[in-house]
């Protein structure tokens, strides 16, 4: 007797939906879909956080496009995302190569590189505030290496790089795990074959390992980009947007616009623009890196 899905009656289908899918989907809709749709609608109104008195068309968007602080925050965020994307993944891949060498003790090294990732951005930000402000200047003085002599958080330019440094320290361990998994899943026969063909270590890396683990790059780049775009707690606890709101990433900017200054409609408009930017960046990145992937 053939007993397949298509033979289910309509009643059975509805029953299955009610048992398995109704509650999860209802929660998903209420928590994610409804606020999202309402949020997009609010950007076309004069919403004040509670009430809408009239629909204003694209006025909010027009105003946001002329808002200088918003653009500098968005530009800063793009620079931060770009710098993090490159540095986190270069460092993570380097670490992955180091901790896959067959020696005792690499397990402890992996743990050390991974630990920062376990800990929340607020704690990490506060730790590094202490390091940049107190410990590193003292270290610079006693060791004679002047690089961290001044508090990096007091200057716009160095504060930006301070955020990038802490981000690399935080995220590289996580991406390292992804790269380690990919490196270990490469069939040893393939590498042996190339060794017999007389390739050296660098050639094996570039022509064999990198193409075979392209999928890991797709994922890691996507995750790094997503985290960097949405970064908030580290930004808040490390620089607080200072000096003079010049290190405010887009997330904090939106938060302040709405909850700090009470400009709910324009804050929401900025949030929607942020969503559009993230979507475009994510889709582009996935399409581009998929082209490097090979079927196995």
């Amino acid at each position: 007797m053939e007993f397949n899905v298509s033979m289910r009656s309509r009643r059975q289908e509805v029953q299955r939906f009610a048992v398995f899918a109704l509650i999860p989907l209802a929660i998903f809709a209420l928590v994610l879909v409804v606020p999202f749709v309402r949020g997009v609608y609010f950007t076309f109104t004069d919403w004040d956080g509670f009430d809408v008195t009239k629909v204003v068309g694209f006025d909010n968007y027009a105003a946001v496009f002329q808002d200088q602080p918003f653009w500098s925050s968005l530009t800063l965020t793009l620079a931060y995302v770009g710098a993090s994307l490159v540095l986190v993944n270069v460092v993570a891949f380097g670490l992955a190569l180091l901790v896959t060498i067959p020696l005792r003790g690499v397990g402890a090294l992996r743990t050390t590189f991974f630990i920062p990732n376990l800990i929340g951005g607020v704690i990490l930000g506060l730790i590094w505030q202490f390091l940049f402000g107190q410990a590193l200047p003292v270290l610079a003085e006693s060791s004679g290496i002047p690089i961290f002599q001044d508090n990096w958080l007091l200057d716009t330019n160095t504060a930006f790089w301070a955020m990038v440094i802490v981000t690399v320290w935080q995220m590289s361990g996580y991406m390292m795990i992804i790269y380690v998994t990919a490196l270990m899943s490469i069939e040893p026969e393939l590498l042996e074959a190339s060794l017999i063909d007389g390739t050296n270590a660098l050639q094996t890396l570039v022509y064999m390992k990198l193409p075979l683990m392209a999928q890991a790059f797709t994922i890691s780049l996507f995750l790094t980009m997503r985290n960097a775009f949405m970064g908030y707690d580290l930004n808040l606890a490390l620089t607080g947007g200072n000096p003079y709101r010049t290190t405010e990433l887009i997330s904090m900017h939106v938060f302040k616009e709405a909850f700090g200054f009470g400009n709910f409609a324009s804050g929401q408009t900025q949030a929607v623009i942020m969503f559009v930017v993230i979507s475009i960046a994510a889709i582009t990145q996935v399409i581009v890196s998929k082209r490097f992937e090979i079927e196995r």
């Binding site: 994610l32 606020p35 309402r38 949020g39 609010f42 775009f229 949405m230 938060f255």
Partner: peptide
């Protein structure tokens, strides 16, 4: 569901308070 994974919480948090 898959598409919703790119929606940042920041795009929801402001309507959240009202809702």
């Amino acid at each position: 569901l898959v598409a919703s994974m790119v929606v940042p919480f920041q795009a929801l948090m402001i309507p959240f308070v009202g809702l």
